[in-house]
């Protein structure tokens, strides 16, 4: 059978393409798949629901020239990629050993109650996504800690968490 004529890569917006091209430029021509991590990150950042839809992953596969399943493998391997739509702000509470000893479980409990969602869910207003599980983020000296949209918050207390979340909410409205 013949090739279909519309390309799946057509879905990629111009700015995402630009970013992928930037990554492609950093690797040799026969190593194009090395750009997949950067490409997926770029797609996720530009996505209104902050996730990698199958269609967009297929677009990346087509653009870079990898098989689709190979892109799914990468996307499902790394916990930083979201495979379902999530809220705008991403909160990841570290629950690894140091943070656990310093009370991360209470932080998680508090967040779950305050936001009325469970780990792995997003608030109904689409503002906040509570990431399911986060392993040691290499900030043990500041335990307990959490990461909010790539920013580390350390020495957490319930009050501090409230303040951060309220601020996020505020910035969202």
């Amino acid at each position: 059978m013949a090739e279909s004529t519309t390309r799946k890569a057509d879905l990629l917006p111009a700015d995402v393409r630009g970013e992928i091209d930037h990554w492609l430029g950093r690797f040799p021509d026969d190593q194009r798949q090395s750009a997949v991590l950067g490409a997926l990150r770029s797609v996720q950042h530009h996505d209104p629901q902050h996730y990698l839809s199958t269609e967009m992953m297929d677009a990346v596969a087509d653009y870079i020239g990898m098989s689709e399943i190979a892109v799914y493998e990468v996307a499902s391997f790394y916990s930083m990629y979201n495979l379902e739509p999530v809220g705008k702000h991403e909160i990841s509470v570290c629950t690894n050993i140091s943070c656990m000893l310093r009370g991360s479980d209470e932080i998680v409990d508090h967040l779950e109650k305050k936001l009325d969602i469970k780990l792995g869910e997003s608030t109904t207003d689409g503002a906040i996504f509570l990431k399911k599980e986060e392993e040691c983020l290499a900030a043990c000296c500041g335990a307990p800690m959490m990461q909010v949209d790539h920013v580390y918050h350390e020495h957490l207390t319930i009050e501090k968490v409230d303040q951060i979340v309220d601020q996020l909410r505020g910035s969202h409205d």
Partner: peptide, 26 residues
């Protein structure tokens, strides 16, 4: 087999660790 013989990767290993699955993902 998909990669080397059929020349089309259709099955893959998605997820990681305990959650790794062989399949088509979709």
């Amino acid at each position: 087999f998909g990669e080397e013989i059929a020349g089309m990767r259709e099955l893959g290993a998605t997820g990681r660790g305990e959650n790794m699955e062989i399949g088509t993902y979709i």
